[in-house]
Amino acid sequence: MIPADWIYGLIGGLMIGTAAAIYLLVSGRIMGASGILGGIVDGSGRDTLSERLAFVAGLVLVPTILVRVGGVSGDTNATSNVLLLIVAGLAVGIGTRMANGCTSGHGVCGISRFSVRGIAATIAYLFFGGLTMLVARHVLGVI
């Protein structure tokens, strides 16, 4: 690990937390990515659709501008294995809606509130994420 990585991590993390704090204190909303998107795609958030779409627009547009215009590195290093992408995408979509939260909602907003569900969910996805990594990378060698 080069020393700069954790500094970028910390600065980026503070930006994420500040965004969540603004969304909570000004708008009264939990900044959870899966909940905001889930409410758009399954129709459950139609009452607040324009607010959800605005959030997603900012989330998509600002990084795009930073990479395309600002010259920030946008390497995702994502696999191009279509089967892996589809299986993983389905699992993330279904799983985060079943748990009603992901890294931002349960992790950032939940842990900081000492939410029992947020902490339990975070332990579960880190545990199963680590287990998947162990099996898929070190046993099966597929990722």
Binding site: L84, A88, A91, M98, N100, A120, A124, Y125, F128, G129
Partner: peptide, 14 residues
């Protein structure tokens, strides 16, 4: 909560 988070963790890692 736990099953969904497990499924999420699986996809996140993949």
């Amino acid at each position: 909560l736990i099953g969904g988070s497990a499924l999420f963790g699986f996809g996140w890692a993949l």
